[in-house]
Amino acid sequence: MSDVSDNSAEEIESAAGPAPGDLDMTDEEGRILDQDEIDELLGFDEDADELQSTGIMELINSALVNYERLPMLDIVFDRLVRLMSTSLRNLTSDNVEISLDHISSVRFGDYLNSIPLPAMLCIFKAEEWDDHGLLVVDSALVYSVVDVLLGGRRGTSAMRVEGRPFTTIETTLIERMVNVVLGDMTSAFDPLSPVNFRLERIETNPRFATITQGNNAGVLVRMRIDMGDRSGRVEVMIPYATLEPIRELLLQMFMGEKFGQDSIWENHLTNELYMTDIEVQAILGETTVSLHDILNWEPGATVMFNTRVEDSVELRVGEHPMFTAKTGQRQGRIAVNVETYIAPGSGGGKRS
């Protein structure tokens, strides 16, 4: 009897299949997936390109707003790179080359956890937008700028001392460079929308540089700065909440674009309207007459108006009164002399 029960239990388990909580890590051929294949399926493949996401991570990040929907950012940051090339060259008295690596969308929390330390995290405020942004200077650029500003020899890479905090001198020198970068960023945004970026503080711990919630998306701009044999990176992180006041301007495809408006056609239409012929009627007088009186009219009948010779007449275009005028004669013809303009919706005239 026990053998029959065991066989029945095995048949029930085989028919029911795997438990709901069990993950089937086998392919169609029944082969078990190894760890690398599982990581690739979930989107955690470290060898994959940074700009290409796969698996479940693609679904998670699908809610992010793509920066390509804000095409004006490309123009703004291209302008920033040109301005920084000149400003940093004047600051360091050295040949400085700046390249824009890429612009991407990323969650603020994910970016904050990915910052390689040590680094200087500079929190700045956009005063007109009343919000903040983050500028990160990596350690390689910190030591390179300090070495150049303090007269280091050319052709030698900056010496890095790991495992210690940045000194006051290093922080002061980087603060000078950051103020230059923020000034150039102010100039880059100025043709689009006047804004002033002001440095508030410099942190070295990412926990103290939280300017928005971790799940909020933002625009991440990566720039590489080369000074001879020295190089480093500057990254600008601006949350989308900070850019919200100028979102409509960033949606433009080119500077000064106005959706639904064509200046050439507008000027042409305006000129054509000015050349339009319209009929103006001079109303000498109005009165109310009954139908019985009209039926009794005969040639030579006299119709009485309440208008005197010295009274003003009304000039109309269609049903709209436009001016009041005085009647007279000119070269044997009846003429009117315009005196006042009648504003739309008003009952009287306004002296023009």
Rank of each mutant, 00 (worst) to 15 (best):
V195C: 13
I225A: 07
D229M: 11
V221Y: 03
G228S: 06
I211S: 06
G228R: 05
T210M: 15
T210I: 15
G228C: 10
L220N: 05
D226C: 07
R201F: 04
N215C: 05
M223F: 08
P206W: 02
N216S: 13
M223T: 06
T204W: 06
D229L: 13
D226Y: 00
I225E: 00
G214E: 13
A217K: 00
G214P: 12
L199E: 05
N216E: 14
V219C: 14
R207C: 01
T212R: 11
I225G: 08
A209P: 10
A217P: 09
N205G: 06
A209T: 03
E200R: 15
I211A: 07
E203W: 00
V195Y: 01
F208Q: 09
F197S: 05
L199Y: 08
R201T: 04
M227E: 01
I202W: 02
F197P: 07
T204F: 08
Q213Y: 12
T204I: 09
M227Q: 03
G228V: 01
T204A: 11
T204D: 13
N205K: 08
G214A: 14
R201E: 10
G218D: 02
P206L: 04
I211V: 07
A217T: 05
R222M: 10
G214D: 15
N215G: 06
M227A: 04
M227T: 04
V219K: 06
P206H: 07
I225R: 06
E203R: 00
T212G: 11
V195W: 07
G214F: 05
F208C: 04
D229G: 13
N205R: 02
N205P: 07
Q213H: 11
R224D: 10
R222K: 15
L220W: 01
D229N: 14
V195H: 00
R201S: 11
L220A: 10
I225W: 03
T210A: 15
R207L: 15
T204C: 09
F197V: 02
R198D: 12
V221H: 02
M223I: 04
E200V: 10
M227R: 00
F197I: 05
L220S: 07
I202E: 03
Q213D: 15
N215A: 11
I202A: 03
A217F: 07
M223P: 02
F208A: 11
R207Y: 10
T210N: 13
G214H: 04
N216A: 14
L199F: 03
N216G: 02
L199H: 00
D226L: 11
R224M: 10
R201C: 08
M223R: 07
N205I: 08
N196Q: 12
R222S: 15
T212L: 09
T212C: 15
V195L: 11
I211W: 02
I202L: 08
E203G: 02
L199T: 01
N216C: 13
A217C: 09
G228H: 09
D226K: 12
A209R: 11
R201N: 07
R222V: 12
P206E: 03
E203M: 01
F197W: 12
R198F: 08
R201I: 02
A209Q: 05
L220K: 08
